[in-house]
Write a protein that binds this DNA or RNA. Structure first.
Length: 303
DNA sequence: GGACCTTTGAAGTTC
DNA sequence: GAACTTCAAAGGTCC
């Protein structure tokens, strides 16, 4: 039963993405090189950050087949040169390539079938784009001029939970105290990237639509929805992510992602071994049968 | 209690 | 500079 479900879900996705112009995609989209949406330099024109989230939903974005095939995609950073002054060379750039996701390892809920996975981005034309509510952008008290008392969510106790209860300090040696003090330092988390911001916003919706609770399965769906987003829709999240990073840099100038390295114990060697031997546990703790390599996606016109 | 699963992207490390 | 690794979120599952 499980296997059948997996296979049926796999078969559905083997036919995804719907070939452009084949009538399966909710709204055929114009080619990527639609100059109307770009600046004279070929850079998509974007309105200021928050405008996206209070303005009507934008026109369906240009997207072409190369987006779905992992073909080099000349996405570029929106022209925000005057908007961000602290960003480094690579910060905020849209990815240069997009790889197409592998077939799902999870059985998908019938209520979250093929079409529900990839709703038309403009299903409600003219409807306002949902306001982005990522808490990181609701500045906390650490930001000058902001009265809000909510600390920046990037700061969490080392455990990720509440502080430990007081203990008998007399029982601790100096070294232990020092180590403990070090360990008690709040961990500054990485700023969220565009996809993480998207996930955070859309997770509840997917849970409601698909009646799923497994994050691994939800994330698979979100990953595919992410790929189904238009460039403009994705650009909103890339822009938010860049804003996140800029804010993060301002709040924690000396912070480096290296600071959190090693705080999660991962079995990288084992994982590597799994990947080289073809086995990988799924969220159910089982090793799914290795599916045949997905056929390269070709537009219907070619097929 | 903590690693794992899953996803993408950013940034760090290694060669 | 390419390739690889780690960590961000999430919550159920497993050890």
């Amino acid at each position: 039963m499980y296997k059948e479900t997996v296979y049926s879900a796999f078969n559905l996705l083997m036919h995804y993405p719907p070939p452009s112009g084949a009538g399966q995609h909710p709204q055929p989209q114009p080619p990527l090189h639609n100059k109307a949406s770009q600046s004279p330099h070929g850079v998509p024109q974007l309105s200021p950050l928050y405008e996206h989230f209070s303005s009507p939903h934008p026109t369906p974005a240009p997207a072409d087949i190369s987006q779905k095939q992992g073909v080099h995609r000349p996405l570029q950073t929106p022209d925000l040169s005057g908007f961000y002054s602290l960003t480094s060379g690579s910060m905020g750039q849209l990815p240069h390539t997009v790889s197409w996701p592998s077939p799902p390892l999870y059985p998908l809920s019938p209520s979250c079938g093929y079409r529900q996975h990839f709703p038309a981005p403009t299903a409600a034309p003219g409807a306002p784009y949902p306001r982005f509510t990522h808490p990181s952008l609701m500045l906390g008290s650490s930001v000058p001029g902001h009265p809000a008392a909510i600390p920046h969510p990037a700061i969490v106790p080392p455990s990720g939970k509440q502080e430990l209860q007081p203990y008998d300090r007399s029982l601790k040696t100096q070294a232990e105290s020092k180590a403990e003090k070090e360990a008690k330092k709040p961990t500054i988390k990485k700023p969220l990237n565009a996809f993480m911001l998207y996930m955070k916003e859309m997770r509840a919706k997917v849970i409601a639509e698909c009646t799923l609770k497994e994050s691994a399965a939800i994330n698979q769906i979100l990953g595919r929805r992410w790929h189904a987003l238009s460039r403009e829709e994705q650009a909103k999240y890339y822009e938010l992510a860049r804003k996140e990073r800029q804010l993060h840099m301002q709040l924690y100038p000396g912070w480096s992602a290296r600071d959190n390295y090693g705080k999660k114990k991962r079995r990288s060697r084992e994982k590597h071994q799994e990947s080289t031997t073809g086995g990988k546990r799924n969220a159910f703790g089982t090793y799914p049968e290795k599916a045949a390599a997905p056929a390269p996606f070709l537009p219907m016109t070619v097929l």
